[in-house]
Simulated assay, not measured.
Amino acid sequence: MKLKRQQRGLTFVGLIIVGTLLALAGIVAAQVFPTYLEYMAVQKAVQKASAGSTVAEVRDIFDKAATIDDIRTISGKDLTVGKQGDRVVVSYDYAREIHLAGPAWLVMKYKGSSQ
């Protein structure tokens, strides 16, 4: 006697739910990715700016690099400039908010330094 095998797989409703969740994750990822790229550009600009010897020079170098790399979230005046030994240390701390839906927001906090 042959036993019937039970079918396995994803139902149409399950497929719609999985597809919706993947689409929502893709939408959020598409909004987060540019903020990460900007963070990488900020880090690169901070490394360049740490070559300055005065606070004004560091901020000016950062602002020039920010203009080239299209950094809009943070400017030279938002940097914390200090000295550690004989090295200039430039640090930053900022947040980006991404509106998801209704009262829901995704907050991305970025922090780094030239060390």
Rank of each mutant, 00 (worst) to 15 (best):
Lys109Asp: 10
Met108Asn: 02
Val58Thr: 02
Gln43Ala: 06
Ile98Pro: 00
Lys2Asn: 15
Ala104Thr: 12
Thr80Arg: 10
Leu21Ile: 09
Gly14Leu: 04
Ile71Leu: 14
Lys111Gly: 10
Ala56Pro: 11
Lys2Thr: 07
Val58Lys: 00
Gly26Ser: 13
Leu3Ile: 10
Ala25Gly: 09
Asp60His: 08
Thr67Val: 01
Gly82Trp: 02
Ala25Ser: 08
Asp86Arg: 03
Phe12Asp: 08
Thr80Asp: 13
Asp86Tyr: 00
Thr35Ala: 05
Trp105Gly: 09
Tyr110Trp: 12
Ala25His: 09
Pro103Cys: 04
Lys48Ser: 01
Leu37Val: 11
Leu106Asn: 13
Glu97Thr: 07
Lys111Val: 15
Ser75Ile: 05
Leu106Val: 02
Leu21Asp: 04
Ala23Arg: 08
Val13Gly: 15
Leu79Ala: 09
Ala29Leu: 12
Lys83Ala: 08
Lys83Cys: 07
Leu24Pro: 10
Gly26His: 14
Ala45Ser: 09
Leu3Arg: 15
Ala56Thr: 15
Thr11Phe: 08
Gly76Gln: 03
Ile74Glu: 07
Ala25Lys: 05
Asp78Trp: 02
Lys83Thr: 12
Val81Asp: 05
Val46Trp: 01
Gly26Phe: 03
Asp93Lys: 15
Pro34Lys: 07
Ser113Met: 12
Lys44Ser: 14
Thr35Met: 12
Leu21Tyr: 10
Ser114Ile: 15
Tyr94His: 08
Ala95Met: 09
Thr11Met: 07
Thr54Gly: 13
Thr67Asp: 07
Leu3Glu: 12
Gly82Gln: 08
Gly14Ile: 01
Lys109Thr: 12
Gly9Lys: 03
Ser75Asp: 04
Ser91Cys: 13
Glu97Pro: 14
Ile68Arg: 02
Thr54Arg: 03
Asp70Asn: 05
Gly52Asn: 06
Ala49Val: 05
Val88Gln: 00
Lys4Tyr: 04
Val13Phe: 08
Ala30Met: 13
Val107Glu: 11
Ser75Phe: 01
